[in-house]
Nucleic acid binder design. Structure first.
Lengths: 247, 247
DNA sequence: CGAGTCTTTGATTATCTTCAAATCCCGTGG
DNA sequence: CCACGGGATTTGAAGATAATCAAAGACTCG
């Protein structure tokens, strides 16, 4: 036994990470907290965990103990149908919370997988409940995050229920660029961390259909597509596709 | 002006309704509370509101003030795409909570419409946050309800993304009968409160497709369909359809 | 009883999936 | 440094599923 994290399992780092100095604090759980409250939250978020690309942060059925805030990297969550094939339910980037589904039954209801080398803050759930009984701002922020997830899911249901392939892909790309922009990245240039198949699973499409939609956007001069390197050339065109959905 | 509720607007009844004596307390927010806690929750849930069939309980964009627990009746919630057509995101029956989407931004993000004459308990949200800071059991129960909604939504995403028409309808009917059974109704006989179009909107299908799926189930002896009166004749067949989905 | 809504059913069409094969790309090891 | 291997992506052709269009029939509510 030695101190190095084993290369093939998610390493636990007992490293202290201060929410107070985290550049994600305006996107994450600490929104609105004052200095003293931040300090107490930091006492709770004592652990960080590294998750190498391709590894699970947690699996469907595992006991739920903590929420995870993405610090760096990129995740997908998927639920599995009983026979094996699965549905990607979301992609999570820095500042977003993973594991909310686990509260309902003390067990996780989906898999969370890192799509690139990532690290997360571990937020022990019982302690979070305790602290949010003390600080109404934290309580409210936590509730807002859960509610936002519900609103997001309803948006995905609208997408899956009413939109056609190209409209779905347009909505997906706009959503991604918006979130990247909120984190200081370009609104027009992005590198996809997921495969066509994972995009397809999220959008309720087969990978070939996703690929064809990308090609169509390329032909139409809406996107420049170089494998996973995407440049948005005509954002209004994407917007129009989404707005005119289900006409 | 007179005391009668106006027939075309949801009436406000200042009637005291005791959670403590409500036969839904094992399905609703009060789960796990002791007598004294129940009493305090009752102090908060002071109002009941009647919503006639076809009326809105709240609308997309309205200010969010309170959650609503369905006391009697049946609701649908829908989100609208920008152009007009909308997606039903859920059907709610007795003991289920409406309005959770509103927490995220202090405004409702969907419409809630009564599908039959209904009544709800009004739960002022700020007060609920206050009380759940005092009672950890209430707090946890509330979190579980939000988390359960997220898990449910992920299930719908799986349905919309991976299942074919008949599989979707089977999953829908099994879900309905399970919830009705939990409320003491028959697991094999039910009256649909929604139109084929509303079912279709929820399932991402057109009303004709829903109708054809019902006819197919009737032919195959899986269901007896008399308009909205449905009898499940072969529940295992429905289960198989759902389990084998996306093979 | 009648109007209007809801539902069913048939025929045709659009969209997406499936199957298949070629190509691209990245990391690895020689 | 370059060739190789395997996963990822693109593209084409054929087939399946659900949408659309259309019309008739059934039920509900006033």
């Amino acid at each position: 036994m030695h101190d190095m994290p084993t290369p093939n399992s998610a390493a636990i780092e007992p490293l202290k990470v201060a929410c107070a100095s985290c550049n994600l604090r305006e996107l994450c759980l600490p929104v609105g907290l004052n200095a003293s409250e931040l300090d107490q939250l930091d006492g709770l978020v004592a652990k960080r965990r590294a998750v190498p690309r391709g590894e699970h942060l947690f699996r469907n059925g595992e006991r739920f103990e903590a929420l995870y805030a993405v610090r760096t990297g990129f995740f997908k969550t998927c639920v599995g149908s009983e026979d094996g094939r699965d549905q990607v339910t979301g992609f999570q980037m820095a500042g977003e919370l993973l594991g909310l589904d686990g509260i309902s039954s003390d067990h996780h209801h989906c898999d969370a997988v890192a799509l690139e080398d990532s690290s997360v803050c571990v937020i022990p759930y019982t302690q979070l409940e305790g602290l949010s009984r003390e600080f109404s701002v934290l309580q409210h922020q936590f509730h807002k995050i859960m509610s936002r997830e519900i609103v997001r899911d309803h948006g995905v249901m609208l997408l899956l229920g009413n939109m056609r392939a190209e409209e779905r892909l347009a909505a997906f790309l706009l959503n991604l660029t918006q979130r990247l922009q909120a984190r200081g990245f370009s609104a027009s240039s992005l590198v996809l961390r997921m495969t066509r198949e994972e995009i397809g699973s999220y959008l309720g499409l087969k990978l070939e259909t996703v690929s064809r939609a990308f090609s169509k956007f390329q032909e139409d001069g809406v996107l420049d597509v170089k494998q996973r390197q995407i440049t948005v050339l005509d954002q209004p065109a994407l917007q129009r596709l989404v707005s005119n959905a289900a006409c």
